[in-house]
Amino acid sequence: MVSQSPGSSAGQPGSGPLVVLDNVNKYFGDLHVLQDINLSVARGEVVVIIGPSGSGKSTLCRAINRLEPITSGTISIDGVPLPAEGKALAQLRSDVGMVFQSFNLFAHKTVLQNVTMGPVKVRKMRKAEAEELAMGLLERVGVANQANKLPAQLSGGQQQRVAIARALAMKPKVMLFDEPTSALDPEMINEVLDVMVALAQEGMTMIVVTHEMGFARRAGDRVVFMDSGSIVEEADPDEFFTNPRTDRAKDFLSKILTND
């Protein structure tokens, strides 16, 4: 639990933890997908969420920008509780970058337009300025030479890097990644992970659902292990992978290790 006592820094933007989940529960019908989740992510922290399929990782990730409304509890970003549906929520979402497993680039827009849409339509930036920003970001993720192509003309790895650039164009406070490499051919995984590691090193606050242990060890500050809708174990990445404390984590790790 995070203290919410008067006079504490929580509740004021610019200080305190960036993302706070307090006693969050989520049901899909009778299915209790998130069970009493408490999680606090500090500024600049990289949290890796790991766990078996169906354990609620995606739902947790999507709850943080309210793509999935929760049943009870509170979620705050930079001290501000998630607003209900409407303009304020849209504004808050613009501060939370999200990268999906299936990229979800706007299929009818060029790579460049994908990246400029948010700055122009949400931040009301001038088009020329947005394009300059976008080209810089595309450069940074290594796909500047594809700027005028449609997403379908790019490889999966390239598309995912564009998706990261699109999210970064909003200058988000925190980035959410939901299995960003699990739809990719193996030879493309590293080009995406490299971009993410660089981002982590630059101090971006990140919440990453992934089974990529290499990434977790290189860039992760903390591993959160989920099973059946609950957080079962939290640990330093090296500690977690070499010396898991709970049986469920041990069991899970033995499975993903033998699968590789």
Partner: peptide, 14 residues
């Protein structure tokens, strides 16, 4: 549905 989610995720209104 991913198109709509991506649109909302960058802060576009409905």
């Amino acid at each position: 549905v991913g198109q709509a989610e991506a649109a909302r995720a960058i802060g576009l209104t409905f």
